[in-house]
Design a protein around this nucleic acid. Structure first.
Length: 302
RNA sequence: GGUACCAUAGCUCAGUUGGUAGAGCAACGGACUGAAAAUCCGUGUGUCCCUGGUUCAAAUCCAGGUGGUACCA
């Protein structure tokens, strides 16, 4: 009976600190289902306070996936996430008609919803080589390389963004083909339907919540957590708001007070970037986090 | 109560011999397919405290008021 029904993925997205975790748990309780986290920092088992992971109590209420599922020492990327989530959904949809995916990492959500092109993973050595060229010879050096290897892509790319340029170069060099020719610009077919819910609040209220939450993180021991991770600060997983500012303080560059202030500022900016990402996607229906009933209505009607 | 100094963007402040204003931070808008809490691009948002005066023209000079700070009583 259950297996004949249409399967649906309910995506809950929105800026940091808007109240996604709590909302998703309530919705999961109503739908009697499980939650997949789409948060590129909550994957890491070593990061807890600074990533605002659901609490042990919250985790005991509803089964969560991709919370603390990986280590900061392991390489991880969006494509792996897409594969792992699709596999997981296969099994979850055998038990449930609806599954919830909640998170703030737009790229990761899109990879699950629309798919991502099959391109080679990063070759660490090649990336390092290109980074060295960038650091030693400047952005012009890598711009010129890309202009030569993939002029079409070079024309459309953000030319002052070194990470974009280096990624495109990696693909061109690793495959011997142009990056632009390997991108399909097509969404992959999914065997399930997707309902996208965006959560947002008044900007002023959101910022108050962000500021308050940072203070709470500090009282819960964020500084101590960061101290324990100081030796790992070079890892990509720790290029993260809440940690990098404290590392800067440990290095003696800024006061603790200043570091905390910067965590707040950087969190606000992160929230803004998240909103930019989600807003341009017209398939999101927007709600205030206190509108659980309205979202349930939407799910029933759709 | 008296004297001095100050009042310009959300904040801290610049502003020349009078020609309706600009820096840092904050903020705002955007881009983004294997680093994405990353990375990158763009944008001054103003009753120059108020009222009156001088002047072709006032943030700027003058008078008064209001608010603040310091010192003296």
């Amino acid at each position: 009976m259950i297996s004949n029904q249409i399967k649906r993925l309910i995506v809950i997205a929105g800026p940091t600190a808007v109240g996604k975790t709590d909302f998703a748990i309530k919705l999961a309780q109503y739908l009697e289902t499980e939650i997949i986290s789409a948060d590129s920092r909550q994957f890491y088992k070593e990061l807890n306070i600074g990533t605002a992971k659901p609490s042990p109590k919250e985790l005991s209420l509803i089964k969560h996936h991709f919370i603390g599922s990986h280590s900061i020492h392991d390489y991880y990327n969006v494509a792996q996430f897409e594969t792992e989530v699709l596999n997981l959904l296969d099994s979850l949809f055998k038990k449930y008609n609806e599954v919830i995916m909640v998170g703030g990492s737009g790229l990761y959500i899109d990879a699950v919803c629309n798919g991502i092109d099959e391109l080679p993973d990063v070759d660490e050595e090649l990336r390092q080589e290109l980074n060295e060229i960038y650091e030693e010879e400047g952005i012009t050096a890598i711009q010129e390389k890309l202009k030569f290897l993939d002029p079409e892509f070079y024309e459309t790319i953000d030319k002052s963004n070194p990470k974009r340029i280096i990624r495109a170069l990696e693909v061109c060099i690793a495959t011997g083909q142009k990056y632009s020719e390997q991108r399909s610009n097509k969404n992959k077919e999914r065997s399930f339907e997707i309902i996208k819910v965006g959560l947002n609040k008044d900007r002023e209220q959101l910022y108050e919540r962000i500021n308050l939450r940072v203070d709470q993180m500090v009282s819960s021991g964020l500084v101590e957590e960061a101290t324990g991770l100081f030796e790992s600060r070079h890892l990509n997983a720790l290029n993260t708001v809440g940690y990098k500012e404290l590392f800067d303080h440990f290095l003696g560059n800024i006061t603790l007070e200043k570091a905390i202030e910067k965590i707040k500022t950087n969190s606000r900016r992160y929230a803004k970037r998240q909103l930019t990402w989600f807003r341009k996607n017209e398939s999101y229906k927007w709600f205030n986090p206190n509108e659980l009933e309205e979202v349930i209505d939407l799910i029933k009607r759709t």
